[in-house]
Write a protein that binds this DNA or RNA. Structure first.
Length: 162
DNA sequence: CAATAGATCATCT
DNA sequence: GATGATCTATTGC
């Protein structure tokens, strides 16, 4: 997962920070409350995008990771911009350096132009796609507690590529 | 530089 | 009607 390349149109980035949400056993996960209109995609087959709107102004991108019936997902928290830097800058006037373009769940969705219209998109087909790195990442993964949530915040489910 | 408040709406109770 | 997997600008040292 970490190190994978995310591509949407002219913009692309390397996934360097993610958080896992375990579904039914994880009180912090949206799927914890069961199947609803918003979480239904989480209960489907893996490899699909789960996009949700939060705080009235931000959207977050997740990948469904668990088999059908098991609502696990991974929140993409941060990317390292690889392509389409100009496009990203145009979308994010407040970012001062490249590292700021895609740092944070809400920021990367704006830089990559990912919105609710991509809810349920198949990541193997597009318009957003994910590609494995040439060689697996190793030795640079840091595990930390999760961020920004109310319950189970101290579960070590945040993974950062250094 | 650290801490805090405000923006703003889809979804759930 | 309340809440939230956030970001930014502003205020206070």
């Amino acid at each position: 997962m970490l190190g994978c390349t995310l591509i949407h149109g002219p913009a692309a980035g390397r996934i360097v920070e993610v958080e896992a949400y375990l579904g039914l056993s994880d009180r912090a996960a949206h799927a914890f409350r069961g199947l609803t209109k918003r979480t239904q995609i989480l209960f489907g087959p893996p490899g699909h995008a789960y996009v949700y709107f939060i705080y009235g102004m931000h959207q977050c991108l997740n990948f469904v990771t668990e088999p059908e019936g098991s609502p696990g997902c991974v929140l993409i928290r941060s990317l390292e911009p690889l392509a389409g830097l100009e496009t990203m800058r145009a979308r994010r006037p407040t970012a001062r350096k490249p590292g700021d373009l895609c740092s944070g769940p809400g920021n990367l969705t704006r830089a990559m132009d990912i919105g609710l219209s991509l809810y349920g998109a198949d990541l193997t087909v597009g318009p957003i796609t994910v590609h494995q790195p040439p060689q697996p990442v190793s030795g640079h993964v840091v595990v930390t507690p999760r961020i920004g949530i109310t319950y189970c915040a101290d579960w070590p489910l945040r993974f950062v590529l250094s």
